[in-house]
Each structure stands twice: as structure tokens, then as C-alpha cells.
Design a binder for these strands. Structure first.
Lengths: 210, 210
DNA sequence: CCCATCACGTGTAGCA
DNA sequence: TGCTACACGTGATGGG
């Protein structure tokens, strides 16, 4: 199978012991006419040490990165190299998830999701629909009517679409009212988009657009 | 790229040529009266095997984590193990920075920063001040006056304080008007906080609070 | 060719 | 003493 006889059979275990002696004694690099045997061996030795040092450098690079990695995520316990990399994996995964949550922008289709974040205990809501100037005010009013206290919000608008992600403090009312309130906001947005500007005159002429 | 498991992973290629033989042939663990020489050697061999396999497992753990790391950050070029870890460092640093930008919550002191994001080309603004119900409406009006189109916003409120981070499309007006507009919003917030509710009656009685 | 990278086995130091 | 984790040197392999 993996027979590699040619190379090593001859050299037979001259792995390293005598080479140190060769390294210092002959030193015939400048002298061209010398035993080709020792010349070849000297070359081999030089290659070996070069290889050794290269590998050393490589290890230093890797371990250096691992060290900085460990310094920047205060894992404290489990200073284990493997566990540390596991932690790094966790962090990067976390990053990708939270970044994808909103940064990916509003979705093409209208969407409303309301759920409970078991990590923080807060209620969370994500809503994407057509953008319009007063949507923020409508959202504020809807949230007030649902007695929902928003503790954090992220929103983005691109290409006439908008997406909002809300963190709401838990209250006894639960998810239902929050979902209904936001659904009304979303539906109003789609309605106004389909019918050509059908708001009578009761609307405040002032535009609130973030 | 790396990881050529084919050769050694399976039982193939009995890495330890004679040891397996030693392992099975003497089998003197139960026999007390035997050459103590060979017993000691057998123990040593067993220890060596155990050690070897343990190290193998450790390597597999580390490389496994590195593999998942590489799979989840599509670095494409530079599949190098060291460079990969460098990329991971970059990503985690990025995460910590963007997370610290707002998630750390509003600062204790009033603060307004307006700058240019060279990465996205957008103008960015971060503002933290006392919270009040109509601050969002005020911000909207101020931004409209400054002709600033907000393309993304993150805001959080905790303990009566609020912090907002805004991404604004670049316009010829530049950073100045944007800064001035937001400064007025911030100053109004601090003013109302110091004087006990000093708004006349011109204010809309309705509260807009996200 | 040489160079860079990898997986491997081993020596060794801390810890139960 | 056994176990765990680490750094080291070495053979093999693939790409300029």
C-alpha cells in the first residue's frame, strides 16, 4: 500500500544523531571539491533545520491568534484550547444570527412574527411591510393601546420597504394584544399601498418619517 | 485542503506494528509470576497507546472546531489554518464593537456623536439623553428639517435614559445640520428634565412613546 | 526543486 | 501514579 522503501532504506536511521557533528565539523559549503556524500548530508541537515524553524513559525502564528482570541472573549473558566475554539464558534454563530435578524433588510412579503425570547424574558416582534411616512406614529399609538412598553427597537428601510424589530417588556396581557396591534399597523400599510392614497382628510397633514 | 483522514483514521495501517502483537500475546495481567521486565514493558506500551489515542482525540476536537469555524465564515480565499483563525479574530472583534455600540445601553451623561462611516459611506449619529414620551416625534421632525433620510435606526431605553443610533444617507449638507438638529433634541430633553415639566400648553397632549 | 502546510507520535509538565 | 493538555520535531503532500 504505502510502501516508500527507496528513501529511507539507504539512509537507515541516520535521523539526527550524527548530523549535529556534521553540522559543525565539515563546514564545506565553500569548498566545491569534497566528498559528495557529506555535501549531500549537509544539504539535508540545512533543509531539516529550515523545515524545523518554518514549522516553529507556523505554530507561533496559530497560537498567537488563539491567544488573542482567548484574550478578547473573557471565557475565564475552561482555558482549554479546544474549548476555547468551541466558544469562538458559539460567538461567531451568535453574531451571524443577530446580524441576520435585521441587517438582511425587510423581506419582500409582508411578515409579522411575535414570540417570547427565553434568553431575555422579553417579548419580541419583527414586522416588515411597505414603508410610509406615518408608520412610526401608528406603531407608537398601536403599542400604547396594547400597553406594550418598548425597551429596544431596531428598524431599517430600503427600497420602499421597512422592517422593525421590537423588544417589549413582558406584561400579563401576553403576546395576543401585541400581535393584533402590530397586525393592524401592517394591514394599514398594505391597504394604503394597494389603493391609491385612500386616506380621507382626517389624517394629520404632517408627515412623520424617521 | 487539510485533513486527509483517509490513511490513519480507520483501523488501516496499524500505526503500531508490533505493539498490537504485544498487546495480545503476553496478556499476563492476571498472571502474577512472570518476568517483571516484560510486565513493565507491557505497561509502558499500554500507556504509550493510551497517550497516543488521547492525543489523537484532542487533535480531532480542535480540528473539528476549526472546521466548523471555517464552514460558518465563508472566507473563501486563504483556507490556511492560521489565516482562518485570524479571520475569526476579526469577526469576533467586529461583533464586540457593534454590540458595544448600543447594547451597552444609554450612557449616564448626555452625549451626541455624529460621524461618517467610511465602511458604508453613510453618516452615523449616536445620541443618549433622558427619555421622554415625545422624543421620537421630535427626532423625526428634527431629522426632516435637516433633510436627513434615516435608513436604519437602533434605540433602547433603560432607567429613564434613552440611546439612539441612526444611519443617515449622505447628502450635500454634510454632518453639520444633522448634528445641530439632534443637539436641539438632546438639549430639549435635558431642559425639560431640569425644570419641572415646563412645557406651556402648546404641546400636544397626546404622548408618543415607543 | 523549495517552500508552506498538515497530521502524527512523543517528551514533558501540571493535577487528581 | 494515571490523566490531560501542550510544544516540539518529523515525514508526507501539494503548489509555485
Amino acid at each position: 500500500m504505502f510502501s516508500i522503501p527507496s528513501l529511507y532504506d539507504m539512509g537507515t536511521c541516520s535521523d539526527s544523531y550524527d548530523i549535529v557533528g556534521m553540522l559543525s565539523s565539515p563546514t564545506n559549503s565553500d569548498n566545491p571539491n569534497l566528498s559528495p556524500r557529506s555535501m549531500a548530508e549537509a544539504k539535508a541537515v540545512a533543509a531539516s533545520i529550515s523545515h524545523k524553524e518554518a514549522e516553529r513559525r507556523r505554530r507561533k502564528r496559530i497560537n498567537g491568534h488563539i491567544a488573542t482570541l482567548k484574550s478578547m472573549l473573557p471565557n475565564t473558566i475552561k482555558t482549554d484550547k479546544a474549548s476555547l475554539l468551541g466558544e469562538a464558534v458559539r460567538r461567531v454563530k451568535e453574531l451571524k444570527k443577530s446580524a441576520a435578524e435585521l441587517e438582511e433588510g425587510p423581506s419582500e412579503a409582508d411578515e409579522l412574527k411575535v414570540w417570547q425570547c427565553e434568553k431575555t424574558g422579553l417579548m419580541k416582534a419583527a414586522l416588515s411591510c411597505d414603508d410610509r411616512p406615518e408608520i412610526i406614529v401608528d406603531m407608537i399609538e398601536a403599542l400604547k393601546a396594547a400597553e406594550a412598553k418598548v425597551v429596544r427597537a431596531e428598524m431599517s428601510t430600503v427600497g420602499g420597504r421597512t422592517k422593525s424589530v421590537l423588544w417589549v417588556t413582558q406584561n400579563d396581557a401576553g403576546l395576543g394584544p401585541l400581535r393584533r396591534a402590530l397586525k393592524m399597523v401592517m394591514d394599514k400599510s398594505t391597504l394604503e399601498a394597494s389603493s391609491g392614497q385612500g386616506l380621507p382628510a382626517t389624517k394629520r397633514p404632517r408627515y412623520y418619517h424617521l
